[in-house]
Design a protein around this nucleic acid. Sequence first.
RNA 1: GCGCCUGUAGCUCAGUUGGAUAGAGCAACUGCCUUCUAAGCAGUGGGCCAGGGGUUCGAAUCCCUUCAGGCGCGCCA
Length: 565
Amino acid sequence: MKQDISDIVQKALERLNAKWGVALPDIEVEIPRDEAMGDIATTVAMRLATLCKKPPRIIAEEIIAEIKNNILPPSSSLEKGERDIFDKIAIAGPGFINFKFTQKYFHKGLQSLLEEEHSSLRADIGKGAKIQVEFVSANPTGPLHIGHGRGAAVGSALCNILKAAGYDVQKEFYINDAGLQVKLLGRSVYARYQQLLGNEVPFPEDGYKGDYVEDIAHDIHTREGSRYLNTPFEECGEALTDYSYKMMLAHIGDDLKDFGVVFDNWQSERALHEQGKVESAIHTLRSKGLIYEKDGAVWFSATRFEDDKDRVVRKKDGEYTYFASDICYHKDKLDRGFDTIIDIWGADHHGYIPRIRSVLEAFDLPKEKFRVILIQMVSLLRHGVPVQMSKRAGAFITLREVIDEVGPDITKFIFLTRKADSHLEFDIDVAKEQSAENPVFYVQYAFARISSLFRQAEEKGVSDQGSGIRGEALAPLKENEEILLIKKLLQYPMVFEGAALACEPHRITYYLQELAGVFHAYYYKHRIISDDKGLTLARLGLCRGVKIVLDEGLKILGVSAPERM
RNA sequence: GCGCCUGUAGCUCAGUUGGAUAGAGCAACUGCCUUCUAAGCAGUGGGCCAGGGGUUCGAAUCCCUUCAGGCGCGCCA
């Protein structure tokens, strides 16, 4: 729909520009707010006004005349051409050009949806460009919490969108398996293990206090018995630490899997060190004169770029910082040949962005290739009361608990009903108890209703398959609600494109709710299966179109599309 | 103190990258099940888009400023 208008207007503009001789602006096309104004509109005349130094309405008139006289197929006959595609082309307001399509146009649009199915809903924006999205990347020092869940839902949906938009997408989880935090987990497990066996060693200050730490200790005891009892941490710490974080990592992987999120690659931070990549990246910076020593530590001159402070890469104790691995990691990602790398972070890490951008600049890597999506905090509520979350104290609600209690579909859908960068209130009881009022069911119910229709049609021996919804078969669709519904279906590609370009999955969520709404209204008002076979087939065709688009959208969100409810 | 984000209906949030008379879902109130799933439909009420200034044909959207809230500003990750 958008493409058709863009093409037609583009042709008209190119012809007219022989006379104007200006730099043509992009043709922006939008859905008018009010249905009555038209099906689609362009603002290009207003944009041209300053360029051509003419009033926008005059320009709009010229464009319309050009379209009617010289562009529209199949002949120069204005009446005929207009009848095939447009009911009306009109100027409105300050210079909008509003297009109103014919029923025939909508029938054809539905027909190509039915013929091409999902492929007609995707686009080739990416043209095979390699893009990598890194998300979740939770420290393997504890279970995933609800904030990670939001990141997982958004990241996964975004990847689905980008794939459908023709990008070659890789989903990556970065494992922070180096550094102090995993060591602290090891110490915590060590202490619990000793305590379990009656050796009351002190629990580390700021250690991880969650029950899962004891679980790991128990697990080690059942597998390996008491062999580490009274062994100093210096001797067995490494083994315990390794075991512990790998265990956590396995749990994280399981949680994600049950949430319906899978990764293509798990990149270990340790591996970067072991392969000498961290050292070599720092070395490269040093050779560029961007590394210096001060106070016994090694620093990166980030202030030469856009950061407001220089940053330590190697601590006084000789250990590399997390930032050092991150320097290496981001360079490495681009070295791996990705055209774009997207990092999805918790919004509390926003201060980190200038640092990484500085790094890319330091390596002469184009920083436009690096994009960050920030995920705002989730406030978890129970009965409208905030649940306080503190990881260190061990008092928090895990993603696992939420999935078990509320279910993955509802959880994901709620995460995806808001822009990533805006706060989200997640009330477990509202999500669960009022599940009938939950928007996810509204959308799924539309899908289930249609599925039910097809089952019944089949029982009555009516099938839209085989008999073929082609050519004139869709002509009986004449009701307002039917045209409205087709129009909604044909808007999907516009919404999808917008979601892909802006990296905003929530647009799909909103669209699906609207589509379901239009469908429910239609379903209530008009009977699909009737004695009129031609009409029944046409309406089933329309329903199949809705089903295809609902299916596509739900797949992108990672939410199931049930045949029955 | 500096930086980033947020402020839209009673509540939770959208708002097509600057477009037309500001939108949805809850909540409230009215109706609709002998008809393909009422997890549904139809309708009513509800707004100084935090306040103020600016930019232009046009601002919830961009710039400046004030106020309010959140988050950062480690040789943690």
